[in-house]
C-alpha cells in the first residue's frame, strides 16, 4: 500500500515536471497576450498616441461603438456567409470524394495522397494559384470562356461573384481535410453491416442512407465544426484576391480587424473586434468538445 503511495507521489512529481514548462510557456505566449488584448480593448489606444494605451476613462467605448459600425456588422455577415457556404461545400464534396475513394485498390490508395495536396500547400500559394485563375489577362478560365463566347465578368471585382470566388478557393483548399476525416470514418464501418443489408436486397442508395450516413454523421459534424473555426482565419485569400472589396463585399471580420490595427493603427478598437471574434470561436470550440464527448459516451 505504501509502495503504491510512493509510486503515486513519484508519478505526481513527474506530472508536475512534465506539465509545468508547457503551462508556463503557454501562459506566457498565449495567456498573457489574451489578457493584454482584453485590457487594450478597453482603451482608445492608437499607435501614434502612446498615452492612449492606458486611458481607461471610458472602458466600454469600443464595445458600444461596435453595433453602430456598419463595416463591423457587415463583416460578421460576410464571415457568416463565407463560413456557411465554405463549410457546406467542403463537407458535402469531401464526403462524396471519400465515398469515391473508399475502395480497395492500390491505385486509389496511391491517388489518395495526391488529393491532399491543396491542404498542405501554404495558404499564400493557394491564394496565388487562384489569383492566376481569376486574372482575366492570363487565366485559362477566361480564355476558355472566350472560346465558348461566354462573357465572364471579372470574378474578384464583381459584387455578385467576389465572395463566391473566395468560397471556391477556400473549398478547394480545405476539401481534402473533410475528405480525409470522412474516409477515416468510412474505414471503421464494419463490413458485416452492409453485407447483411445487401443480402436483404438493399440497393446502394439505401445502404448509404441507412447504414453509411448515420455512421459518419458525427464525423461530418465534427469536421464541419473544425472547418467552421478555421474559416474565421481566412486571411491570405482575402488579402491577395480581393482586399476585402469590391466595397466591403468580401471583408471578413478577421480582415477588418487587421485593417483597423495595422492600417489605421486603431489598436484599441481592433482589439475589441478581435475579442468578439474570439468569443465566437470559443463558443464553437465548446461545441466541438461537447460533440466529441457525446460521441465518446455513445461509443
Amino acid at each position: 500500500m505504501s509502495g503504491k503511495g510512493l509510486v503515486d507521489a513519484e508519478r505526481r512529481r513527474f506530472n508536475v515536471f512534465a506539465l509545468a514548462p508547457s503551462l508556463i510557456v503557454l501562459f506566457a505566449i498565449a495567456g498573457l497576450p489574451a489578457i493584454y488584448l482584453v485590457v487594450t480593448s478597453l482603451t482608445p489606444f492608437q499607435l501614434v498616441n502612446p498615452g492612449s494605451s492606458t486611458d481607461f476613462s471610458s472602458p466600454l467605448r469600443n464595445y458600444r461603438l461596435l453595433p453602430d459600425d456598419p463595416r463591423f456588422v457587415n463583416s460578421l455577415w460576410v464571415q457568416a456567409k463565407l463560413s456557411f457556404w465554405g463549410v457546406l461545400f467542403q463537407v458535402l464534396l469531401g464526403m462524396l470524394l471519400a465515398l469515391l475513394l473508399h475502395t480497395q485498390s492500390r491505385v486509389a490508395e496511391f491517388a489518395r495522397t495526391f488529393f491532399l495536396i491543396p491542404m498542405v500547400l501554404p495558404p499564400i500559394v493557394v491564394a496565388i494559384i487562384w489569383k492566376l485563375i481569376y486574372t482575366p489577362d492570363i487565366s485559362p478560365l477566361y480564355y476558355a470562356a472566350g472560346l465558348l463566347n461566354i462573357a465572364m465578368p471579372s470574378l474578384t471585382s464583381s459584387v455578385d461573384f467576389a465572395l463566391t470566388a473566395i468560397i471556391i478557393a477556400d473549398t478547394w483548399e480545405w476539401l481534402p481535410f473533410t475528405f480525409l476525416m470522412v474516409l477515416a470514418a468510412l474505414q471503421t464501418i464494419p463490413d458485416e453491416f452492409s453485407e447483411a443489408a445487401l443480402v436483404d436486397g438493399a440497393n446502394r442508395f439505401q445502404i448509404f442512407f441507412y447504414i453509411t450516413l448515420p455512421f459518419i454523421t458525427p464525423i461530418l459534424v465534427i469536421s464541419g465544426m473544425f472547418r467552421l473555426i478555421d474559416s474565421v482565419k481566412a486571411f491570405p485569400l482575402v488579402f491577395l484576391l480581393t482586399g476585402g472589396g469590391p466595397g466591403s463585399v468580401t471583408e471578413v471580420t478577421n480582415y477588418y480587424a487587421y485593417l483597423l490595427a495595422f492600417d489605421f493603427n486603431e489598436i484599441g478598437y481592433s482589439s475589441a473586434v478581435t475579442i468578439v471574434m474570439l468569443l465566437l470561436v470559443v463558443a464553437v470550440s465548446f461545441g466541438v468538445v461537447w460533440m466529441g464527448r457525446r460521441r465518446e459516451a455513445m461509443a
Binding site: A30, Y36, F262, L278, V281, V284, V288
Partner: peptide, 15 residues
C-alpha cells in the same frame, strides 16, 4: 489548450 489553438492569429499579433 484547444482554444489557444483555435484563436484567430490576429488575437496574438497585436500583443
Amino acid at each position: 489548450i484547444l482554444v489557444t489553438r483555435m484563436a484567430p492569429p490576429i488575437a496574438f499579433t497585436i500583443p
